[in-house]
Design a protein around this nucleic acid. Sequence first.
DNA 1: TATGGATCCATA
DNA 2: TATGGATCCATA
Lengths: 199, 199
Amino acid sequence: MKIVEVVDVIESSDITGSSLWKRGWKDIEDSIHAIDWPHGSGTFSLNPEGKHANGVKPIKEPALNLLKDRGWKVESLPSELSGVKMGNLDALYSSSEIENIGFEWETGNISSSHRAINKMLHALLKGGLIAGVLVVPSQAMRRYITDRVGNITELREYFYVWSQVSIRKGLLRIVAVEYDQLDRSVPLIPKGTDGRARR
Amino acid sequence: MKIVEVVDVIESSDITGSSLWKRGWKDIEDSIHAIDWPHGSGTFSLNPEGKHANGVKPIKEPALNLLKDRGWKVESLPSELSGVKMGNLDALYSSSEIENIGFEWETGNISSSHRAINKMLHALLKGGLIAGVLVVPSQAMRRYITDRVGNITELREYFYVWSQVSIRKGLLRIVAVEYDQLDRSVPLIPKGTDGRARR
DNA sequence: TATGGATCCATA
DNA sequence: TATGGATCCATA
């Protein structure tokens, strides 16, 4: 998969110069590039037939596997991060006990992206994270995958709100990702039975 | 319906003393008290059979009708509110061209409540609103209505984040509401076919 | 029970 | 196409 846009909604105190961040961001870039479809093919081909015909659940698996291999804590994160009682982030990287980078792959509903960001803001405010990265599909991907999934277009109007939260030291980065190519010969990504799916 | 909790997450510059607010809040209280089930019965009785067996869509209708009667603009709000490009709020009250009170009845998914609040924060920051009110079901109601609907319990952890947004002049109020009584003899509130419902 | 998610709806 | 919503799933 490829990265088509990177936006730093909050950036204070030169986080991007730290060695922790450099390693963490390298891992994140590599993990996004590792995402392929069909799994194992080495490139992300998306079948453009139909409207919203591809599911989203299996997409992130190669990324989380790579992060796990690189020493990130995946799923089952500590429910307390510097006093922030929150549900899990998708992955967490920490070199010390003090500095953490949070990673969220957002293919839930767009409204869920608001919660994910509010959660990372909470941890940034309390010092539980020094950086939070949210990955969402690009505008071009929207029509091919499950309807109403998180996307960068609908988040744009809110960048201003999040930029008004005073974080002394922290980075909030939003990354838009996209298929490498469209290809009618690959299988559609399967959908689950959750949400309002017919069962 | 009854109000069981009122939380002012942001309150700056004594909005609650203004006459616009006093009239607007009176309307909101009256509109919540006007919500009944079955519609026309004058009191909100909820059938407690089953898990998450009641739908939520018809609940807010009596409230919005009352607000409309009191001169609030309901639905189809201007898509631009002091430069804030946003989707509609459920209702808007304005005595002048300048001062507006926004009203959101939240029975979408809990994550949608995060978007609703982020949206009202945006308008508060830009001066499009002087007050925003979000109404959500109480903890006690959760088990009887559609699963994962917005509720005050899951929002509590985020009050801190929203309180950190510097609003010069504005109020952000969250209101928890609840049935007047449980009653196995009333009909279940019908559900729509959206979401992951079987059709 | 709690929590992030995945899915499709309705209307403009 | 755009946008708020409504509904049920999966797992801890």
